[in-house]
């Protein structure tokens, strides 16, 4: 009998489905992956159940790719189970790596999010004020739902993570490289982010257009100006997270003439991407005058949401203070 193929699992938590798509998008290359491995769990595509995973021996899955942030008790339970059953855990995509877009929920809490979703959005019609409950009895039977936490967590705030595949969603070449490295046992040290450790600016075609001394006198939002497709965004006064963001995405936003929003997260030298960008931006504001500084700062509408668009749960502060949420 031929050697048993390594077992692989895919799981999703708080995510949009884009990371699942990134696997399907491997197109014909996925067939090679499927040939080389045995997929034992993949809720979006295959009909295996939780009990099937429960029945597996500890450590019997070679690698689990988990996308999405952790916000529900069920997600916490599932990823803890997968951790036990797996040799390696790969955080697949920005949400599991840094919290991602769902992580922006950390500016709010359960109560305010429920209130908005179930009561106050203009399209909501909910006269009985029904909200999801964790327990409800219907015809004598108790039904349950997972708990919804006040805070969104990165995967590594809940379980031990071996590798990170960055990106919203991770590009195909990085996924294939990661799979190949795992199959060949040629992995970098544990904890590595599987993308080159330098900033996006280092690889950006527009870097050359940066003036010797880069300065900004006014911050503009992309829709307010006609964007020069050759020139560095920062030199045009448009916020581009490139200096504080890891490379490896293929500059896909820049090529679409949109600034980088930072989905690859920081390089190894930096923990807090938002603070790093804040520091870089403050350095290039072209004035030493207090009033002028304050004027420019006022043109940055939402610094926290902009600098931590993808990484709020991974930041040093992680969330807005609960007491400050009304």
């Amino acid at each position: 009998m031929s050697k048993a193929k390594p077992k692989v699992a895919f799981y999703w938590c708080s995510s949009c489905g884009g990371c699942e798509e990134s696997i399907v998008d491997l197109a014909e290359d996925i067939l090679k992956v499927v040939e080389a491995v045995d997929i034992v769990f993949w809720p979006v595509a295959l009909d295996f159940k939780k009990k099937d995973v429960e029945a597996m021996e500890d450590g019997s899955i070679a690698v689990s790719f988990i996308n999405g942030a952790v916000r529900l008790s069920e997600q916490e339970e599932m990823v803890k189970m997968l951790r036990k059953k797996s040799g390696l855990i790969v955080a697949h995509g920005t949400c599991s790596h840094l919290g991602g877009i769902p992580g922006l929920g950390n500016f709010w809490n359960k109560e305010t999010i429920f209130n908005r979703s179930y009561h106050t959005t203009p399209s909501t019609d909910n006269p009985d004020r029904t909200v999801p409950l964790e327990k409800v009895v219907v015809e004598g039977k108790e039904l349950t739902l997972p708990s919804f936490y006040d805070t969104v967590y990165t995967l590594d705030q809940v379980i031990d993570v071996d590798y990170y595949l960055p990106g919203c969603a991770p590009p195909r070449d990085l996924i294939l490289n990661a799979v190949q490295a795992i199959l060949e046992g040629k992995l970098p040290p544990k904890g590595a982010v599987l993308s080159p450790n330098k900033s996006l600016c280092d690889d950006c075609d527009r870097n050359e257009s940066k003036p010797e001394k880069l300065v900004i006198t006014e911050i503009k939002r992309p829709w307010e100006v006609e964007i020069d497709p050759e020139k560095c965004f920062l030199a045009q006064g448009i916020i581009c997270m490139g200096p504080a963001t890891r490379t490896g995405c293929g500059e896909r936003c820049i090529e679409g003439n949109m600034p980088c929003r930072g989905c690859f997260g920081p390089t190894d030298q930096v923990f807090d991407q938002g603070a790093k960008f804040l520091s870089a931006l403050a350095s290039i504001l072209d004035t030493n005058d207090e009033k002028e500084i304050e004027k420019i700062v006022n043109t940055i509408i939402d610094p926290a949401g902009t600098f931590y668009r993808f990484s709020l749960p991974h930041s040093i502060l992680r969330r807005r203070r609960m007491e400050a949420i009304k």
Partner: peptide, 23 residues
């Protein structure tokens, strides 16, 4: 030369951001 001006610019921007965190 300029370190304290840099601190000033960072302080104003960081203050605004900290308020968004409830500080």
């Amino acid at each position: 030369q300029e370190g304290n001006y840099k601190a000033l610019r960072r302080h104003r921007l960081l203050t605004k951001m900290l308020e968004q965190f409830g500080i």
